[in-house]
């Protein structure tokens, strides 16, 4: 027991917490981008999973070949491919909910089912395995000397500045709150919403690549509800990038503690400690929901004519 508590006050534990927080934070930032524009993004879960898959495939394949005497960096390849994969699946989501104006929750859930099925399908076709990809190169260094981590920090700051301190951010928030008013001012509502949704795809896609790089491979359903938890963090953070990230840190901390609980096995069965992040999400959601105000037009498709 004492050993367990002592282990919580170490640099290793801080690093562990941050490592777990990264995919949550990226997905949550994506959620802010999309939801601020008025598009609910339940699809974050599927975007994470797709990013993890494309990231893992890129890392594996780029490690196999030499391109005209140049050896591609598998980690960079994974990050870029993760973002691209995320953008692709987010584009499908945007097509269905922005262009065809389908119900955003129904379509979001369908995107998640699609990502789960499609990644398993392609896994089987590419690597003849039903559950995981071959081992890929992963992060070699600790988190503080990992350039991808600092890239993520940079992305988080950029997202904050973009949403709160730029004209683009003002437009993004305007189409999420008062699409008709924004339209009157000459803003093309659905174009801005497309940008929000695609940005969320890129961010959450990188989050997925991080997941795959952390465990050196793709495992089926490896997003394990993180997209939904990130969405809860967006709500807790009142749809503000900085507070959403703070909420993610809380979830990261909870998960890191859970892992420690398993390592030190202090009498709580593993099956029960695994429930911890999910229960925490439900409790915080119930506690925060009345106090945070969603964008006013969230979930309502906009028809310009």
């Amino acid at each position: 027991m004492g050993e367990f508590f002592a282990s919580l006050f170490t640099i290793a534990f801080v690093a562990q917490t941050l490592r777990i927080t990264v995919p949550y934070a990226l997905a949550a930032l994506g959620g802010v981008m999309s939801e601020r524009s008025g598009v609910i993004n339940i699809a974050l879960e599927g975007i994470l999973l797709t990013g993890a898959f494309t990231g893992a495939v890129a890392a594996y394949e780029s490690n196999q070949y030499t391109l005209v005497g140049y050896e591609p960096n598998p980690i960079a390849a994974a990050v870029i491919a993760g973002a691209l994969g995320g953008v692709l699946i987010a584009a499908l989501y945007g097509l269905v909910v922005i262009t065809f104006k389908a119900d955003q929750i129904v379509a979001g859930v369908a995107i998640n089912l699609l990502a789960a099925g499609l990644t398993r399908y392609l896994l089987k076709l590419l690597y003849d395995s039903a559950s995981n990809s071959p081992e890929i190169p992963g992060f070699e260094t600790g988190i503080f000397s990992n350039p991808v981590f600092w890239l993520v920090v940079l992305l988080a700051i950029a997202a904050y500045v973009l949403v709160w301190r730029t004209r683009w951010g003002l437009r993004l928030r305007a189409v999420g709150d008062h699409p008709e008013a924004a339209h009157t001012l000459g803003i093309t509502v659905n174009a801005v919403r497309w940008q929000g949704v695609l940005a969320s795809g890129a961010l959450a896609g990188v989050g997925g690549a991080w997941l795959a790089l952390s465990v050196r491979g793709f495992v089926e359903n490896m997003s394990a509800g993180r997209g939904y938890i990130a969405l809860a963090a967006v709500i807790m953070g009142s749809w503000r990038p900085q507070w959403a990230c703070a909420a993610c840190l809380l979830f990261g901390l909870a998960e890191a503690v859970q892992i420690k609980l398993q390592t030190y096995s202090i009498g709580v069965p593993n099956e029960l400690t695994q429930m911890f992040p999910y229960i925490l999400t439900m409790i915080t959601l119930a506690g925060f929901i009345g106090r945070s105000r969603p964008p006013q037009a969230l979930g309502q498709p906009y028809d310009s004519d």
């Binding site: 339940i42 939904y228 809860a232 999400t281 439900m282 959601l285 119930a286 506690g287 929901i289 009345g290």
Partner: peptide, 8 residues
């Protein structure tokens, strides 16, 4: 609590 049933 008004918590959305989807996430829960």
């Amino acid at each position: 609590y008004g918590a959305h049933e989807v996430i829960n």
